[in-house]
Design a protein around this nucleic acid. Sequence first.
DNA 1: CTGAAAGCGCTTACAG
DNA 2: CTGAAAGCGCTTACAG
Lengths: 338, 338
Amino acid sequence: MRPTLSDVARLAGVSVATASRALSNPDLVADGTRRAVRDAANSCGYRINLVARSLRIQRTDTLLVLTPDIENPFCANLLQGIEDTAFDMGYSVMVGFTAKGDRRCESYAELLSNGRVDGMLVLDGGTGMSRFTGPKPEVPVVQLLDRVYEPPVPVVRVDDGAIADLAVRHLSGLGHRRIAHIAGPLVAQHALERRDGFIAAMGRLGLPVPDTYIQAGEGQWDQASGAMELLLNLPEPPTAVYCADDMMACAAMDVCRARGLRIPEDMSFIGTNDMPESQRAFPQLSTVRVPDASLGAKAAELLVAMIRSQQGLATDTVLPVELLARASCSPVRTAVAA
Amino acid sequence: MRPTLSDVARLAGVSVATASRALSNPDLVADGTRRAVRDAANSCGYRINLVARSLRIQRTDTLLVLTPDIENPFCANLLQGIEDTAFDMGYSVMVGFTAKGDRRCESYAELLSNGRVDGMLVLDGGTGMSRFTGPKPEVPVVQLLDRVYEPPVPVVRVDDGAIADLAVRHLSGLGHRRIAHIAGPLVAQHALERRDGFIAAMGRLGLPVPDTYIQAGEGQWDQASGAMELLLNLPEPPTAVYCADDMMACAAMDVCRARGLRIPEDMSFIGTNDMPESQRAFPQLSTVRVPDASLGAKAAELLVAMIRSQQGLATDTVLPVELLARASCSPVRTAVAA
DNA sequence: CTGAAAGCGCTTACAG
DNA sequence: CTGAAAGCGCTTACAG
């Protein structure tokens, strides 16, 4: 049998109360007593039972993070960022993958309502979490990137319209006018807003956006490749492409290379997120960096603040993005076109 | 206040004992009673408190998985595979990243000894977990890929020597004799065994292995690039390279491409793991597939079996690997050398 | 089929 | 500074 606090108390010749204090609140106890209790604990190999402690103090010091998956390196980084600051604040993290279906989501949401975790951090990729946790502002939930619950459930995100605008202006600054967009999974709000932001930015610059210049990439390698094929087969192909995601940009670049096009001379590319593969791509991919680590850190901090029921917390936190001009964009070649 | 079981009992006009049975063991209770209790529970929005339940039944139905990081897609897949089968068996998973240092590892290990989780799954990348959890066969721990604790702590793995042998024989079957190896992080046992397996396999075929033909890639993109540069600068460069990891193979291929070498005509490559990038590489990378999902599933099943204190469990489970011959290897060009 | 009671292993007012 | 006691919210022999 594992020794309990009362075993320690008996060994040390004190009450359980004192043993508890000596171990978790040493200041409340006399020097000698403290030493006696510690010795007793060591000698019998005592380890506190955290479950009992949790029941008593009514918190688990555990956070649940929900993410569609972690095949996407961006999500993986986010998760690591969250775990990192959670750890520093004394929290452990449980993880659930929502892309696996509704039954899973429901089951995960119950960990929160059933008291197994103190709070939940949801990074939704268009999965239907909203069906399972209604907008109950009283439970500690913070959303990452996409708003799936109404305010006052807080969200930590970037400005996706601004991202698209940055990308488009970079390209237009290089003289491009025929700019296409390969969109992400439009079930996810951020993908939708990047697409709409793309249209808006083009409009502001007076550049035309034929329907065919917006292709569905769905955040998938293969679909993005297909989207690029379609763009290249257009009677009047674009000279530059803004992709809602770096992985799709890499896929699209590969298609161009396979067709013998030079990048950036024949086709310029700009992605989003600054994933690890962007710097490894050839040529290195220009992108709009989304600060994954800070996003995760901010979200974790906010969640913990909610758990500790602090007041007046931000309900919408927008973190800055950054244009990273690398080698995949160049000035447009002056068209000698028909 | 959240309603408790005694609130439900009062509402339904029964004892707490009956309320508990009606909810978690419906068969033990009369039809009418069951209905009354359920109605009561619904009407007040009762949710069971899992922490209290855990304390009572002495298990948490939670597993801890320790991994160096999840930037490596292979680890990410493994984690997802584990979570998947854990979920199916009724377990939640907590995650800890061991690459973050010793203090972290120690802290994670305490979750096990302090009763927060029922078992631990460790995927060690050469981090010093062994320092924190001695070889106590009684605690439920299973190791993935690398053995860091002595038997009888079980391990679920592949045969790394066989992997290297498969790769080398594939290359030698194509006529290659000058075969080099880019090694993984040698602090990790699997990397060490792949390297030693490489040497052994070459020896069996009577092929020479100059020291310079074994370069340190450390599982890092940049280091692998550097390793490839060194190989290319050799007076007598290899005609083929076996990489301990697909990511390093991709890095090495990029170096060759940048130098204007053709793959596979000028240099053949074979990797390990079958990561997603392997199929996206150009040309598609030949590799030895390590069955990440099955590895995770097997490990999770084994761990749960240990938790349920089943007897006679395997202490060493070796899963089969598979050679995937894709486009990055071709017959050696008959040397017109000096 | 149901209830009274004990107990899982802690923490924390409250009194002294 | 220390102890006796209550209680966190469940489950499960044990009796009936």
